[in-house]
């Protein structure tokens, strides 16, 4: 039935075209679903960003073996808040360099007790696994002039030495990263995709003080 109808329609359409009708004239408005690119770009002030840190809070220095990142502060908030800020800055540093990802360099020392990371048993790839971003800390407490250190690889608990975090008067958190470009090996537990990390953390972090 349809075949017959459109066989006839074809013949009529040929006549119609011959009389000057065009296919374009036989179109009604397209009720399209807009594609992503059809949506307007946001104004700059609509894009979420993290306020700039005060001078001296963050530093990045290229060294043999990677880029050494340091966050310094005097007001301890929480380990997660400060380490997340460092991770965010690491991601932004990579993006600014036109890189795409970075490898976190673990600062393991002989005798450290923390187990080594292994590849996911299901061979999954990840954009990031934040628990594997483990910078090293050093800090001074109120009334003490000596730096104390804490390594996440030591096996000791964070502030497991009995020190009250509220007494921390100054701290430095340090991480070394190696930038990368191109396809990231997401199976590597120490690989972090810069854009994914930045987007994940941008609403969560603030510059330490």
């Amino acid at each position: 039935m349809t075949k017959r109808i459109y066989a006839a329609a074809l013949a009529v359409s040929m006549v119609a075209v011959a009389h000057g009708a065009t296919a374009a004239e036989a179109q009604r408005p397209d009720p399209k679903v807009p594609l992503a690119a059809d949506h307007p770009r946001p104004a700059p002030n609509e894009i979420v960003s993290v306020p700039a840190a005060a001078p001296g809070v963050f530093s990045a220095r290229k060294e043999k073996g990677g880029t050494r990142l340091v966050v310094k502060g005097r007001k301890f908030t929480s380990r997660a808040a400060i380490e997340n800020y460092l991770a965010y800055r690491a991601a932004e540093e990579i993006i600014a360099q036109d890189g795409e990802w970075f490898m976190f360099v673990e600062s393991r020392q002989p005798g450290d007790g923390a187990p080594a990371l292994t590849v996911d048993a299901q061979l999954r790839s990840f954009s990031f696994r934040m628990p594997n971003f483990r910078p090293v800390w050093r800090y001074k407490t109120v009334g003490s002039g000596d730096w104390q250190t804490w390594s996440p690889f030591s096996g000791a608990a964070f502030f497991g030495n009995g020190i009250d975090p509220a007494t921390v008067a100054e701290y430095e958190v340090t991480a070394t990263i190696v930038p990368g470009k191109g396809l990231m090996n997401g199976r590597d537990p120490l690989a972090f995709h810069a854009i994914a990390v930045s987007d994940f953390l941008v609403n969560q972090v603030a510059p330490p003080q």
Partner: peptide
């Protein structure tokens, strides 16, 4: 075939 009458999605 070409549409004879206006069509759309």
């Amino acid at each position: 075939v070409e549409p004879l009458t206006p069509i759309t999605v």
